[in-house]
């Protein structure tokens, strides 16, 4: 038996909304330690990795008697989650050898209980081994700032060059009709931590990435006030959104290189 009671359905709604356009079908791997999801986009350029820990406060109850994999169409899951109020408590339930995933939405005032079942899918997905590595540069910034940068630069071109150096981080785009550059300086003196821009630098990195994917990742902006970008030369960028009281959502994007 698997049963996970999440205090805020809005968290799961935001997660699925941020994933469903790039990653249509995904396996939720459930174990006693929590729920993980790894999925690649159809072009095999980007990867997402979600971790929701069972011992975090976001789960009121969590039970998973044996490891199970729940193959779900995320577009369908998004439709089901739209039936839940943002303040509803949501319970996910499945049997040990499941072919159905049940969603139960309890309204805050206890006056309405909704139950939806969806059929599970057999998803033959490949898992990639992502090593724990130290990155040359880790930039932490307000998530809305990163969203704005990606959105603004995507008006002019397809690729952004991210240049991390000791003074800060530069984002540059060069298209057929024009070019743009946004320079973010390190700023750790502002009062609120979530408004700070910090750069941990071991080695300078300059690398280009497809804006289409970075813009898609920023659909997760509402999950977190901050986002971190981890870079090492000639490896994928990691864009991480912490999820308070649950864990994190990470996106990995392979770089673009000069031909």
């Amino acid at each position: 038996m698997f049963e996970a009671k999440m205090l805020q359905s809005s968290v799961l709604k935001k997660i699925i909304e941020s994933l469903k356009d790039l990653f249509s079908d995904a396996n939720f791997d459930c174990s006693s330690s929590g729920i993980t999801l790894q999925d690649m986009d159809s072009s095999h350029v980007a990867l997402c990795y979600l971790k929701l820990r069972s011992d975090e406060e976001g789960f009121e109850d969590y039970r998973c008697d044996r490891n199970i994999t729940l193959g779900v169409n995320l577009v369908l899951m998004s439709k089901i989650l739209k039936c839940a109020g943002n303040d509803d408590v949501i319970t996910l339930r499945a049997e040990d050898e499941p072919n159905i995933l049940t969603f139960i939405f309890d309204s805050k005032n206890g006056e309405r209980v909704s139950k939806y079942d969806i059929k599970l899918m057999e998803i033959d997905s490949e898992l990639l081994g992502i090593p724990d590595t130290e990155y040359s540069c880790v930039v932490k910034m307000p998530s809305h700032e990163f969203q704005r940068i990606c959105s603004n630069l995507s008006q002019l071109g397809d690729s952004v060059t991210v240049d991390c150096h000791k003074e800060g981080v530069d984002f540059k785009v060069a298209g057929e009709q024009g070019s743009g550059a946004i320079k973010l300086k390190q700023n750790t003196t502002v009062d609120k931590e979530e408004d700070q821009v910090s750069v941990e630098l071991n080695e300078a990195v300059t690398q280009s990435f497809a804006l289409k994917f970075l813009c898609a990742f920023t659909k997760a902006t509402s999950l977190s006030d901050t986002v971190s970008l981890s870079l090492t030369q000639d490896t994928p960028i990691v864009v991480e959104y912490p999820i308070a009281q649950h864990g994190y959502l990470r996106f990995y994007l392979a770089p673009k290189i000069e031909e």
């Binding site: 990867l47 090593p131 994007l253 290189i257």
Partner: peptide, 14 residues
């Protein structure tokens, strides 16, 4: 001209 790398190129499949 830039070309897009695949994520397979960086991480091992298992």
């Amino acid at each position: 001209e830039m070309s897009q790398c695949s994520i397979y190129f960086y991480y091992e499949c298992f």
